[in-house]
Amino acid sequence: MRVKLKASSQPRKFIERIEELSGENVYACYQCGRCSAGCPVASEMDLLPNQIIRLIQMGLEEDVLRSKTLFLCASCFTCESRCPKGIDMARVMEAVRHILDPKGKDAFGPGEISPELAQEVPQQVLVSIFRKFSK
């Protein structure tokens, strides 16, 4: 699918905040796509990891914050180990989740897991997912 993008008139603000939170240099990305090629959940994503970076570079904050991708990242660091420019994409994803409206709804909160499933799964999965995907 071809999409015509128009860069934000004030891209710096969003990028600076992402860089401050993540400690990563977003401008280092030259769109090789290795992060997306190796991502185990890329097939479920509306925006691929390299597309997220591109939109951040262009300052298109709203498009990034709307993406399902933020809550599909399992922080497995496959992208991090493959990036030729040394960007840790998992940190960028976490930074974007951090920026999302802190008063907003949980992307995945305790109410969304049945008591039976909560009983069955290892505790670490509950601690992990709520730390990642709820406020």
Partner: peptide
Amino acid sequence: ECCGSYLSVS
């Protein structure tokens, strides 16, 4: 590779 990690609940 990743096994899906905590995505198994979401």
